[in-house]
């Protein structure tokens, strides 16, 4: 893991700057990511929160360099790992970062694993290819990894196929695979969305433990406001391919500074509160082939005003002086309640 030159002190572990991704389809262009910026510090958990079509998954795939081109094109921006720009790298060079420095796990483990190979072999293959280990060593290490993600009787289960595992165990296999090369950044894309709540609790605990053990930066992509509140240090809220708000987790839930975040918090039912009135956000998330002008949230926003919102795209700005960012013209009013 030392094949990069030492970055200058203070360089973030991962830095995404003004990232833009579009899908060129017949007759239309879908603007999935429209100038996304964030940073991830060593050992930090950053949550990227957004609904369907917010660009949260596509942006992660762009960071990993696993978008299919065509139809997806990264049209601008930068992705820097410890200061090294990844976007311009030739594929051969880029591959040395994928898995070894930045790894990713997905919502659907069953389709992320190869159904016709034993899981032990699939994990070992990473080590054969990237580390040049011998077959025997790779297998031993694969079993160690399966133990590390707390799969019971890992030695014999290494010979099983993905379909022989339950949903939660399959997710553990995928995590073992992602950790095989001891990455510095783990991107988890809705890792527990398909799981039952008791299994979700197991997997989130595992991810937290592993993050501590391995001192990884973790990017958690999710739509679940509960999971975010539970595990994140910092949150980036995405809407229509942009960051609309970012803040430290307690700050964001206590003092949302964007009407969209405010609306999300008012529309979730809670297991710990009786008779809570829900105030939904009107309308639906926007069509990315026809993003509204000005502030993309203005057609759904209860605070929108004719004079600025439909025409002027609000920039993400620090609205408290303490790093709480909001992309709303009237963020100060939102903060005021």
């Amino acid at each position: 893991m030392t094949n990069t030159t030492d970055p200058a002190p203070g360089t973030p572990l991962l830095q995404v700057e003004d990232l833009r991704v579009e899908f060129r389809m017949r007759g239309s262009t879908v603007n999935a990511v429209n100038g996304l910026s964030y940073t991830l510090a060593e050992g930090e958990t950053l949550a990227i929160l957004g609904e369907s079509g917010s660009g949260k998954s596509v942006s992660a795939q762009a960071v990993m360099g696993i978008l299919d081109t065509p139809p997806a094109y990264v049209t601008g921006g930068a992705v820097r790992f410890r200061g090294t720009e990844l976007l311009g790298l030739p594929e051969k060079k880029r591959r040395t970062y994928r898995g070894a420095h930045i790894a990713m796990i997905f919502q659907d483990a069953l389709s992320a694993l190869n159904p016709v190979h034993r899981v032990g072999d699939q994990i070992a293959e990473m080590l054969l290819v990237h580390r040049g280990m011998s077959r025997g060593d790779a297998r031993k290490r694969a079993i160690e990894l399966m133990e590390r993600v707390r799969i019971p009787s890992a030695g014999s289960r290494a010979n099983d196929y993905p379909h022989q595992f339950s949903g939660g165990m399959r997710q553990r296999v995928m995590i073992a695979m992602a950790l095989a090369l001891e990455p510095d950044v783990l991107i988890a894309d809705e890792p527990t969305t398909a799981l039952d709540v008791t299994v979700q609790a197991q997997i989130m605990k595992l991810l937290r433990d592993l993050q501590d053990e391995m001192a990884m930066g973790l990017i958690l992509i999710t739509h679940d406001l509960g999971v975010v509140a539970d595990v994140a240090d910092r949150i980036v809220v995405m809407y229509a391919g942009r960051v609309v708000e970012q803040a430290e987790v307690r700050e964001l839930y206590a003092r949302p500074a964007h009407p969209y975040t405010e609306g999300l918090l008012a529309s979730v039912p809670r297991v710990d509160v009786r008779d809570r009135a829900l105030t939904p956000i009107k309308g639906s998330p926007p069509n990315l082939a026809a993003i509204p002008s000005g502030c993309p949230f203005h057609p759904r926003c209860p605070r929108a005003r004719e004079e600025r919102c439909p025409d002027e795209v609000p920039a993400l700005r620090d609205v408290t002086g303490t790093g709480h960012g909001s992309a709303c013209h009237y963020a100060e009013e939102v903060l005021g309640g």
């Binding site: 709540v197 509960g226 999971v227 509140a229 539970d230 987790v249 206590a254 297991v271 710990d272």
Partner: peptide, 11 residues
Amino acid sequence: LLSAVPVPDPT
């Protein structure tokens, strides 16, 4: 079950 549901409130 109830204890496993994360609530949307970090506090």
